[in-house]
Nucleic acid binder design. Structure first.
Lengths: 250, 250
DNA sequence: CAGTGGTCTAGACCACATT
DNA sequence: ATGTGGTCTAGACCACTGT
């Protein structure tokens, strides 16, 4: 916490970027936990010895990145992956009329293995490093619609066991956060169309060679550190993948 | 200095929102054209009789929405749909290794017709109103990869003719902007997997019943007015749809 | 009520681009 | 040298939340 020294180090970065970096550091260290309020802007401005305007500009960016949430009159909170809020943030499968539905998740497989070459690259680990592989079946309106195949770095999730999934809410990003302090803040997805193989046909109850949507996702925590890779196979007969194209940066 | 009264109308909206609205009005009216600079912040602060900070906040939001572009030392410019910048903003098909390629567009069909019920709803017009339908074939690395089927409100694009597509650059969003002053700023897409029918199989040179990606897009201009609906059919054998969920910056 | 974030002001100085 | 946007300050007051 505490007596910050700006004096000796001439910043070549804007001051608010440095403030932002320090706030991020508190989040990463777990000092400020998801769901809790961070100190008031006035207090932060005193602690960092900058004006409130500068604090606000740093927080502005973190709010834009969905890392902090402002609530007028209450405070500024560390974003949590609460069921509703972050579920539909990362869950883009909607009904054909665009309606959002809550998936019901069932664990289908849980195994420990070694990272293959491509997995290792995407997870930022080495080939052969221990990974955990999880397969989930997601139902929408009582029908199996999605098969999720997840791989994570075992070292990053020590002690993760099959049991922890029992009765879990919809996304395992809550689990990552609650049990391991890892917040997923960003994801990249690549989509293509494939034909159902025998296993997917069985799991999704479609005909062999039915068309399916294949989504390959890499999920990142703060500072672009990859934490999970996931392949989702989706029956898009009655559901669709929804994408909103809006602002990038300059 | 706050004795300035805005026409005795007590604003229930923040002042910067009102400023933003007025800047938008200039853009929509075509007073400030894409590619040109808008007046300097200082001048705007005088014109609107507000502080520079308030002007900046209004412009901040328009920049975040990709409607304006700031360039330090030069000015603030109305965003243009220049080939590169806005092409990959709305064009999300990439190579399997994630590389971006420029599509080569060929006009395959151009027809005038009447809006069907669903088209009319999405375009915000009435059933039976005149529409223009366009079919493009997009090649990537010399192979046909995408079939685009576009429908637009004929009333919104008076005098649009087949000829205007000759030698056009990659996206027709440039055409919308240059020839009709319509800037596409946002789009919604819905994706699903389908099987190739006879026509698509022929156009994309794939086997009948090959898996294809079907993208249904609605494109909007300022203030969420729909201007185009488009169905893209993509061969994802060698290409993928790329989606970034939540963009962090460096 | 006190405390929070939200808006707004009126400057100052800096970094950058153009002339 | 001039003009632009970018950063930063030190306040003021408003709107909202909780006690």
């Amino acid at each position: 916490m505490n007596d910050i020294q700006f004096a000796a180090i001439p910043l070549q970065q804007p001051l608010y970027k440095e403030v932002k970096r320090q706030i991020m550091a508190e989040l990463i260290s777990g000092e400020w936990k998801p769901g809790t309020a961070i100190p008031a802007e006035k207090r932060l401005s005193e602690r960092f010895a900058v004006s409130i305007g500068t604090i606000r500009k740093a927080i502005d960016e973190l709010v834009a990145e969905n890392i902090l949430i402002r609530q007028q009159g209450r405070g500024t909170f560390v974003a949590t992956h609460n069921r509703d809020r972050l579920l539909f943030y990362f869950f883009h499968i909607v009904g054909q009329d665009g309606t959002k539905q809550y998936p019901v998740v069932a664990l289908d497989a849980f195994a420990r293995g070694k990272a293959e070459a491509e997995e290792a690259v995407k997870l930022g680990i080495r080939r052969g490093d221990p990974v955990i592989r999880i397969r989930n079946i997601l139902k929408l309106a009582d029908a199996p619609v999605i098969v999720d195949e997840i791989a994570i770095d075992q070292a990053r999730f020590p002690g993760l066991s099959e049991k922890q999934f029992a009765g879990r809410p919809n996304t395992i990003y809550n689990l990552y956060q609650d049990a391991f302090g890892i917040s997923v803040v960003r994801a990249q997805e690549r989509l293509r169309a494939i034909l159902a193989d025998a296993r997917n046909a069985r799991l999704l109850k479609v005909a062999p060679k039915a068309p399916l949507l294949r989504i390959a996702r890499v999920a990142f925590t703060y500072q672009d550190v990859p934490v999970e890779i996931r392949v989702s196979t989706v029956n898009t007969e009655r559901h669709e993948y929804w994408s909103e194209i809006h602002n990038t940066e300059r």
